[in-house]
Design a protein around this nucleic acid. Structure first.
Length: 460
RNA sequence: GGCCCCAUCGUCUAGCGGUUAGGAUCCCAGGUUUUCAUCCUGGUUACCGGAGUUCGAGUCUCCGUGGGGUCACCA
């Protein structure tokens, strides 16, 4: 069985890079009928935030990525890790190091001054003397001294890292709490994770974790390190790059399907296909198709995808999503017209909501340029004629085509072009010269409101 | 700086030794539309550089250059 996991640390919000690796992991598990687990890496008690944790879970729920079983919290598994520390100590695969933080810092500075790679010098590795007093020791694991640590990465291929790059790293702090690389390896092994898919900023953690796997006799999972998504300048994506928090996309009127579709195309593709439903993603995704190079984040494509998904979302569902954007049209008798007239005109739900508000609320003011452009000497005359025609056939006006017939009649009898009436009419109805179709707007707001809006502009 | 990874249109990418180097997005032009948007058609734009290997290289090798990652009692 395939078991994957997503293991964020609750130190900040879930950003799109994290969501993308989560998506990859989730898809791979779902495709294989396996399990996708969620584990919270909160071993550093000082840096955890309850709020961040909630935000991560909330983001998962918004995009519809469901994890299997309960959420694992590393902070609740300390006794497990402790047992393994004891075991390694007993077996001589780990040892206590009495070097103080100050000494360590001094060593590091010295090495840096000599332009050497900072690394622990192993001074307590084979220490047999009496325990120095006054220092709470840390526990370090014995990393191999010779050769290479090698593994096959599912994305990048063969990775070989010299053991000189991996020092005897700390697995338990002086306060007894375990550290990241130690617990990750234990948890992945204990949870039965078969495929570790994560950002390639973890590539250098992998040899360390392999040291732990080997020391404990655990079987290695497959690793797949996915290249980063950079910002538009090609630099590392950071909080400062604007909308990187997943929930911000929701607030900005993006659909989760659009976001997921957007993200899966970073580093993964299937021929020339651009649009993928969740079902297709599950069917087609394979980590072996992930490409090695990093990519740069760019908003244009997301906007395009979002408008595509908006256009293809059933009106009822759209209506319920629009509630978050100050538009409540549930139960509106012209709901279908309203959304058909606006959903093709907005790249985000915010824009669609704006279009709807423009239709539903009589204009408070008119776009000055449009007003000037639309209103000629005979415009008032034409609009008055139109009001009369509307009033006369008041009872038979229901559908957009009914209104269209009236417009055609006016154009025919007065022998004018559509623009003569269309442009000023649109300014009267919406306040500006661009927007939804005239017939639709009038059908939605009704005859009386349409007449009222025309009368209003005639008074202006 | 050491180590590791990467390199095709502005961006996301296809390509897997022989292609007029394809698609998408963006941008521009035209068409459709009473406006805007949608939609349709067309167009501009790319193999980082240099050596090899080969009859033939975007594709393989090496070097350079550029970018990224990583070097904690953070995760």
């Amino acid at each position: 069985m395939i078991v994957t996991r997503f293991a964020p640390s609750p130190t900040g919000y879930l950003h799109i890079g994290g969501l993308r690796t989560a998506l990859f992991s989730w898809l791979w598990a779902r495709k294989n009928g396996g399990k996708f687990l969620l584990r919270i890496e909160d071993t550093d008690m000082a840096r955890n935030s309850e709020e961040a944790l909630k935000a991560i879970i909330e983001a998962f729920s918004w995009v519809g990525m469901n994890y299997d079983g309960e959420v694992y919290y590393q902070s609740r598994r300390f006794d497990i890790y402790k047992k393994y520390v004891e075991q390694l100590l007993l077996e001589g695969k780990a040892y206590k190091c009495y070097m103080s933080k100050e000494e360590l810092d001094a060593l590091r500075e010295e090495q840096m001054a000599k332009k050497e790679r900072p690394r622990y010098d192993g001074r307590y590795r084979d220490f047999a003397g009496a325990s120095p007093q006054g220092v709470e020791p840390v526990v370090r694991i014995k990393a191999p001294l010779e050769g290479m640590i090698s593994f096959i990465d599912g994305v990048k291929g063969d990775i070989n890292i010299a053991t000189s790059e991996v020092d005897d790293f700390i697995i338990a702090r002086s306060d007894g709490t375990p550290t990241y690389n130690f617990v990750v390896a234990i948890d992945d092994a204990l949870m039965g994770v078969t495929d570790v898919i994560r950002g390639d900023d973890h590539l250098y953690n992998t040899p360390k974790q392999i040291v732990v796997y080997n020391a404990l006799g655990f079987e290695l999972p497959r690793f797949a390190h996915v290249a980063m998504i950079n910002n538009e300048q090609g630099k590392k994506l950071s909080k400062r790059d604007g909308a990187t928090d997943v929930m911000e996309y929701k607030q900005n009127g993006f659909l989760p399907e659009a976001l997921l579709n957007f993200l899966i195309r970073f580093g993964w593709s299937h021929g020339d296909q651009e649009i993928f439903s969740i079902e297709e993603m599950i069917e087609l995704f394979d980590p072996k198709d992930i490409n090695k190079s990093s990519s740069s984040y760019n908003l244009d494509k997301l906007l395009w995808l979002n408008s595509h998904y908006i256009k293809n979302t059933p009106n009822q569902i759209l209506a319920s999503m629009l509630k978050d954007f100050d538009v409540n049209i549930d139960g509106h008798d012209k709901l279908e017209f309203l959304l058909d007239a606006t959903k093709e005109r907005g790249k985000t739900l915010i824009e669609v909501a704006g279009q709807i508000k423009m239709i539903l609320n009589a204009p408070q003011s008119y776009n000055e340029k449009d007003f000037k452009k639309a209103f000629k000497d005979d415009t008032a005359d034409i609009l008055n004629d139109f009001i009369e025609l509307l009033a006369n056939s008041k009872d038979s006006l229901h559908l957009p085509c009914d209104y269209h017939a009236v417009l055609e009649k006016l154009v025919a009898t007065r022998e004018i072009g559509f623009g003569k009436i269309g442009q000023p009419l649109r300014v009267a109805l919406l306040g500006s010269m661009s927007g939804a179709g005239l017939d639709e707007i009038m059908a939605i707001v009704g005859v009386d409101e349409s007449i009222k809006r025309i009368e209003n502009i005639l008074k202006a």
